[in-house]
């Protein structure tokens, strides 16, 4: 449980990181908090020959109020989001979801940018970001671009990030009056989600205005429960159970030692109902 030898470069800035990525090609990996990458390197399941450490770039750890949205620096740690007053107030879903990632030690190291870039469908934050319709700011040698969360995750551990690109910022909306919830189902508190459901629900004159539901670990990427979202749109709060019964539609959850795909589908339905109900009560 020792990684193979590799070279180590410290990125002084985002531009420097992009330069280093270009220099080192496919062999290089970006190191943020290291809590997704180092465990698989220790098992020698990943064997990059160069690590580019983003940890020395100070100006990527922030939460800023940008008026219509909040901007979160890619190197902002889970523990920072957990206790950030602005996030707690304006986008509680992110603070709360961050507080469920791993354990306190992991949250002291792991970052939102690392978590999102790794593209693991079992991670909690990506599905919350989907439900929030967050935007990701990406910088590369070709300049800067902004990608919607819905367009970012492409396949199992694959994202739209090019080899010479760095995710620099995550933009999330202010929730204002919208209700939110994240329901994480796991067997032990420290574990990955067997299934997780993020919900953002806007009320409108006593009924549901719109609902957005993000699903964790229900396929090779984080997913939206689009059928349930449509069914909830304009629905009466008393019909949540019926509307969320389609929450697993269009998903392709895997079967493993924790759950069969059938059980995952069932959990997605139950947790979606509970998440929407909780969001409505907030």
């Amino acid at each position: 449980m020792i990684p193979i030898a590799f070279d180590y470069e410290v990125a002084e800035s985002v531009d420097h990181a992009i330069e280093l990525l270009k220099e080192n090609g496919d062999e290089a990996k970006l190191l943020a908090g290291g809590h997704s990458l180092l465990p698989i390197m220790k098992l020698r399941l990943a064997t990059p020959t160069v690590l580019i450490d983003l940890g020395r770039i100070d100006d990527l750890n922030y939460v800023r109020d940008e008026g219509d949205h909040l901007a979160i620096g890619a190197m902002t740690r889970h523990c920072d989001m957990e206790r950030d007053a602005t996030l707690q107030e304006q986008c509680g879903l992110i603070s709360y979801t961050a507080s469920l990632v791993g354990d306190p030690q992991v949250r002291h190291r792991g970052t939102i940018g690392g978590s999102v870039s790794h593209g693991d469908a079992a991670s909690d934050l990506p599905s919350a970001l989907l439900a929030l319709e967050a935007n990701f700011v990406i910088k590369g040698s070709g300049g800067e671009r902004t990608v919607a969360a819905g367009d970012f995750f492409e396949d199992y551990l694959q994202t739209t990030l090019a080899p010479d690109e760095v995710l620099t910022e995550i933009q999330v909306p202010k929730l204002n009056g919208a209700g939110w919830s994240y329901k994480k189902f796991n067997r032990r508190a420290q574990d990955w989600a067997v299934v997780g459901v993020a919900a953002v629900v806007e009320r409108s004159n006593g009924s549901i205005g719109s609902a957005r539901i993000g699903l964790t670990n229900m396929g090779s990427t984080p997913l939206r429960a689009t059928a349930a979202e449509s069914a909830l749109s304009g629905a009466d709060p008393s019909s949540v159970a019926e509307a969320t019964s389609s929450a697993d539609e269009g998903t392709s959850p895997s079967s493993d030692i924790a759950a069969s795909s059938e059980y995952r589908r069932h959990l997605a339905r139950v947790l979606s109902r509970r998440a929407v109900e909780e969001a409505l009560s907030r």
Binding site: S254, S255, D256, I257, S260, S261, E262, Y263
Partner: peptide, 10 residues
């Protein structure tokens, strides 16, 4: 119908 335990690795 609970579905099969299609990943019964036990």
């Amino acid at each position: 119908e609970a579905g099969t335990r299609d990943a019964d690795l036990s």
